[in-house]
């Protein structure tokens, strides 16, 4: 039947299948295999899946019994578990992996020893990113931050790496910026100069509107900080700053994280309870884009 069907109809039929079936159907014949592996088909299948998928999912990482585990849950009142993924690369590093971000079914993971991995859990394949330009060996001590997202302009996944060298009193500003493009497979230094803000350590990163967002700050005096959200657009490779409300921006030692809420950026602000985050949390959602381009 399929031999006689026009190629575009076979394409249309296969694009409606779930990933698991597609993996098996690659073995049916050579023409199906090359069709399913073609970038054109993958893009079309991803778009179709995203368009038809109306139940949102949440990815959780556990660390139980010395083993990293990932579970996917439905984002509704039941919070039922849909799938479990075992971490396929536990032996790769002695540190645990933290989730940098996820985008269109790909997950970016990073460990403290500079290993960064792109992982596609549904086809069980992962890619170890090449060694970046700046390493502890070559440049000494520094702190790095990662961002991960999909650039629809170039139809490519990108990983951003901001490196802050350590000085006697803190970070050396501005940060060094490198970008990894999945289609090219190498790191590239970005020419735009990063703004002179430090980033809050160990905070999550949020990808929305083609831009990675982190919480940044500048030291007004030795004790007083001004906090803001720093964004990096992965299409245009331009930094922007988003001002925070005064009651958050001028807090003494802010405890907060950024996240995505209904296609816009939001901020979780925790009260301080003897230096630790309390159970109370304010959530700020940005209504209108009011970012300022930084030169």
């Amino acid at each position: 039947m399929s031999d006689n069907l026009p190629q575009e109809v076979v394409f249309d039929i296969l694009a409606r299948l779930p990933v698991k079936s597609l993996l098996q159907m690659r073995c049916v014949c050579k023409s199906w295999n090359s069709l399913i592996n073609s970038p054109n088909f993958i893009t079309s299948h991803t778009n179709q899946t995203l368009a038809n998928n109306n139940n949102e999912l949440v990815l959780l990482r556990h660390h139980t019994d010395g083993k990293d585990q990932f579970t996917v849950h439905c984002n509704n009142n039941t919070f039922n578990e849909c799938t479990t993924f075992d971490c396929p690369f536990t032996n790769w590093t002695k540190y645990y992996f933290r989730v940098v971000g996820s985008c269109d079914g790909l997950v970016c993971l990073s460990s403290h020893d500079q290993t960064a991995i792109l992982w596609n859990p549904s086809i069980k394949r992962c890619l170890n990113l090449p060694t970046p330009r700046i390493t502890y060996k070559s440049h000494g001590s520094y702190t790095f931050f990662l961002g991960f997202g999909f650039d629809p302009l170039t139809n490519d996944f990108k990983v951003v790496r901001l490196v802050y060298f350590h000085t006697n009193f803190g970070y050396r500003l501005p940060a060094e910026v490198d970008v990894y493009m999945l289609s090219i497979g190498t790191w590239r230094t970005v020419n735009t100069v990063a703004p002179s803000y430090s980033l809050m350590y160990c905070v999550s990163h949020a990808f929305v509107n083609r831009a990675c967002h982190w919480i940044g700050f500048e030291a007004m005096t030795k004790e007083i900080m001004r906090y803001l959200i720093l964004s990096f657009n992965i299409s245009t490779e331009v930094f922007r700053e988003i001002k925070l409300p005064d009651c958050v921006a001028n807090v003494f030692r802010l405890i907060a994280s950024v996240a995505v809420y209904e296609e816009s950026i939001c901020l979780f602000h925790y009260d301080r309870d003897w230096g630790y985050p309390s159970k109370n949390c304010d959530i700020w959602v940005m209504k209108e884009w009011c970012g300022r381009v930084l030169d």
């Binding site: 109809v9 249309d12 039929i13 296969l14 299948l17 079936s21 159907m25």
Partner: peptide, 8 residues
């Protein structure tokens, strides 16, 4: 196409 996909 949806029907054939379901069959597959």
């Amino acid at each position: 196409c949806q029907n054939v996909a379901e069959m597959i």
